[in-house]
Amino acid sequence: MAITCSTVIIFIFLILFTIFSGQVLSQSDNSTKSILEECRPESGSCNSNSKALPLKIIAIVSILVTSMVGVCLPLLSRSVPALQPDRNLFVIVKAFASGIILATGFMHVLPDSFDMLRSPCLPENPWHKFPFSGFVAMLSAVGALMVDSITTSIYSRRSSMDVKPAEIEVADDEEDNRDREMGVVISSGVHFHGHCHAPIDTTTSGDSQLLRYRVIAMVLELGIIVHSVVIGLSLGASDNTCTIKPLVAALCFHQMFEGMGLGGCIFQAEYKFLKKALMAFFFSVTTPFGIVLGIALSATYKENSPSSLMTEGLLDAASAGLLIYMALVDLLSADFMGPKLQRNIKLQMKSYLAVLLGCGGMSLMAKWA
């Protein structure tokens, strides 16, 4: 009887084990098949090279035009008195553009990097064992801090060395003469109360601030260009007409608002006309250039291949670190902790609202682009 009961228990266990193992194997087979399907090039009714090519040409023209409009609007604001850098409206518009750049880093670039470097098309080791996106973004932000700090430090040291020794000696002699005159007055029994105001040289501090604006503009453009090329490359290599159509519209708004943020920084940097034109030109053509490059490489470029995923993921992570650092430290923090906004609570609240609007609008676009 005991043998019969144990036999029945073992038999039931074997049946349950067989059923369970069969389900596990079928699930693993299904997951393997789904991974393989996901890593293969897209196919279906939406995929057509002949239909996608006209859409890509439209994307090149429309993105180029909207990028130029966005980056040139702040540069043309010198003719508009209300948009001068010392006016409140300029501060609010700059806060809005800074919110756009911040949301671009957090909501567009960094999530794309995580998706690419966590893709099942990449090997488990090391890409799924370590958060490379966050690590590269962190190193990129620290690198931007180093460039910002070292450049400002070198310039400050050079400015202090430019002070002539003769000027220092003259200043010392004048100070000694004033001390001797004070001694004579005091020894004669006359009560004297005076204030000596040495002239303050604001040239050095103004030049240092201008240098920071120029470093901000250059580093910010670098981060935006890297991301723009990656976006254009992905769009140019894709033949999915169902995704290209909404992506083009979203990228037009994306590039225009991002260009407004960059254009404001270029405007404050006070470059000469040629350099302003070159920076605006390079920003405007990077995404169309990426699309053209993607079209040219569409025969060899595989959207879900390990090499393309690793390259785009790491570049996006580096770009995200640059954009987040520049938006938080050099744009938002510099303005909100500055004297203009600290003295005006009403303007500060308006600027916070502008930042939230910029972040919210660009975050909403993350649904399509």
Results as ranks from 00 to 15, higher is better:
Gln209Val: 14
Gln209Glu: 15
Gln209Ala: 10
Leu210Asp: 00
Leu210Tyr: 06
Leu211Asn: 09
Leu211Glu: 09
Arg212His: 11
Arg214Ser: 06
Ile216Tyr: 12
Ala217Ile: 01
Ala217Val: 06
Ala217Trp: 11
Met218Glu: 04
Val219Cys: 13
Val219Asn: 13
Leu220Ile: 11
Glu221Tyr: 01
Leu222Pro: 05
Ile225Leu: 13
Val226Arg: 09
His227Ser: 10
Val229His: 12
Val229Lys: 01
Ile231Asn: 09
Ile231Leu: 07
Gly232Met: 14
Leu233Phe: 12
Leu233Asp: 09
Ser234Tyr: 07
Leu235His: 04
Leu235Asn: 07
Gly236Val: 12
Ala237Val: 09
Ser238Asp: 14
Asp239Cys: 06
Asp239Asn: 15
Thr241Trp: 03
Thr243Trp: 05
Ile244Asp: 07
Lys245Val: 13
Lys245Ile: 11
Pro246Ile: 14
Leu247Val: 09
Val248His: 10
Ala249Ser: 12
Ala250Met: 06
Leu251Phe: 13
Phe253Ile: 06
His254Ala: 07
His254Asp: 03
His254Lys: 02
His254Pro: 05
Gln255Thr: 10
Met256Trp: 11
Phe257Asp: 06
Glu258His: 03
Gly259Ile: 12
Gly259Pro: 02
Gly261Leu: 11
Leu262Ala: 05
Leu262Gln: 04
Gly263Ile: 00
Gly264Gln: 13
Cys265Arg: 15
Cys265Ile: 01
Ile266Phe: 00
Phe267His: 10
Phe267Arg: 10
Phe267Ser: 06
Phe267Gly: 02
Gln268Thr: 01
Gln268Ile: 08
Ala269Gln: 10
Lys272His: 12
Phe273Cys: 04
Phe273Trp: 13
Leu274Phe: 13
Lys275Gln: 08
Lys276Val: 14
Lys276Tyr: 05
Lys276Phe: 11
Ala277Arg: 06
Ala277Asp: 04
Met279Arg: 02
Met279Phe: 05
Phe281Leu: 14
Phe281Tyr: 08
Phe281Ser: 07
Phe282Thr: 12
Phe283Asn: 00
Phe283Arg: 01
Phe283Gln: 00
Ser284Arg: 01
Ser284Pro: 02
Ser284Trp: 05
Val285Met: 00
Val285Gly: 00
Val285Asn: 06
Val285Ala: 00
Val285Thr: 01
Thr286Ala: 03
Thr286Trp: 00
Thr287Pro: 06
Thr287Tyr: 03
Pro288Tyr: 00
Pro288Ser: 01
Ile291Pro: 00
Ile291Lys: 01
Leu293Met: 15
Leu293Thr: 10
Leu293Phe: 13
Gly294His: 09
Ile295Trp: 00
Ile295Pro: 02
Ile295Ser: 02
Ala296Asn: 05
Ala296Glu: 03
Leu297Trp: 11
Leu297Asp: 03
Leu297Ala: 07
Ser298Tyr: 06
Ser298Ile: 15
Ala299Trp: 02
Thr300Val: 14
Lys302Ala: 10
Lys302Gly: 15
Glu303Ala: 15
Glu303Thr: 12
Asn304Leu: 13
Ser305Ala: 15
Ser305Lys: 06
Pro306Ser: 08
Ser307Tyr: 05
Leu309Cys: 04
Leu309Val: 11
Thr311Asp: 04
Glu312Tyr: 14
Glu312Met: 14
Gly313Cys: 00
Gly313Phe: 03
Leu314Met: 08
Leu315Ser: 05
Asp316Arg: 08
Asp316Asn: 15
Ala317Asp: 04
Ala318Lys: 09
Ser319Ile: 10
Ala320Met: 03
Ala320Asn: 08
Gly321Cys: 11
Ile324Glu: 08
Ile324Arg: 09
Tyr325Ser: 14
Ala327Thr: 03
